Simulated assay, not measured.
Amino acid sequence: MSSKKEKIEAPKIPAYLEPITLSDYELEDEQILTDGIFQDCEITNQTGYKVCFDRLRFTNTTFRGINLNKAEFTDVVFENCDLSNINLNESIFHRVIFHKCKLLGVDLSGSTLRNVVFDTCYADYAVLRFANAKLVKLMNSSFAKADFFSMNISSIIFEETNLDQTQFSQTKLGGIDLSSCDFESLGASLEDLQGCIISPMQAAVFASLFGLVVNRD
């Protein structure tokens, strides 16, 4: 369920971080990167298994051809970054902020998200199927046509976010407040939507999902 009483923890990052360049790190399996900042750079064609990112900041960084299966991100901030179409499946995110990022088609399937904020992000077609999300906030963002199939969600906030044609099948939305979000259709069953909070204007959209006609006279 969504609970605005539970506070999302912010990343715990030192005030000063040493600059890190790509030449300093060619990713290896189970490598640990910590206490640094990647800024105004492009990270390309990196592959790693269980790589750990701890107390890091990524600013104006573009990721291309990245495959990081089961990575772990703890106390990390991504700002003005492009993570489109990269593979981060089955990864762990704890105290992570994505601010003004492009995440078009990013693969976060099977991932665990705790204390994560997506703020002013473009994440259409993002894949979060089978993800486990708790204390997560999506705000002022677009997740249109994203795949939230069979997610386990609790204490999650959707605020002023585009969810048009987003897939929620087999994801329980009871207690989840979608009333401030934009959508013309959702991929969800009546069972999925049981107890979901919507606005009066959205009622007609939900009715149309099940073949009902709203008489506006």
Rank of each mutant, 00 (worst) to 15 (best):
K7I: 15
I8Q: 03
I8Y: 09
E9V: 10
A10N: 14
K12D: 13
I13K: 07
I13H: 10
P14T: 08
P14E: 09
A15K: 14
Y16D: 10
L17V: 09
E18D: 11
E18G: 01
P19Y: 10
P19R: 13
I20H: 01
I20E: 04
T21Y: 13
L22K: 14
S23L: 11
S23K: 15
Y25P: 01
Y25H: 15
Y25R: 12
E26K: 12
E26A: 14
E28A: 11
D29S: 13
E30H: 12
L33G: 07
D35T: 10
G36K: 00
G36M: 00
I37E: 10
F38D: 06
F38V: 05
F38Y: 15
Q39N: 11
Q39F: 08
Q39E: 14
D40T: 06
D40L: 09
T44E: 14
N45A: 08
Q46W: 10
Q46K: 13
G48S: 13
Y49N: 14
Y49F: 15
Y49R: 11
C52T: 12
F53R: 07
D54E: 13
D54M: 08
D54N: 14
L56H: 03
T59H: 13
R64Q: 13
I66Y: 06
N67C: 10
N67R: 12
L68W: 08
A71M: 03
E72I: 11
T74L: 06
T74M: 06
D75Y: 00
V76W: 03
V77K: 15
V77Q: 02
C81S: 09
D82C: 07
D82H: 04
D82W: 02
S84H: 05
S84V: 07
S84R: 08
N85Y: 15
N85C: 05
N87V: 04
L88N: 03
N89T: 04
N89V: 03
E90I: 00
E90Y: 11
S91W: 00
F93Y: 09
F93L: 12
H94W: 05
R95C: 13
F98L: 01
F98W: 04
H99A: 04
K100E: 12
K100G: 04
L103M: 15
L103G: 00
G105E: 00
V106Q: 02
D107S: 03
L108E: 03
S109N: 05
T112I: 14
T112V: 12
T112P: 03
T112H: 11
L113G: 01
L113K: 04
R114C: 07
R114E: 12
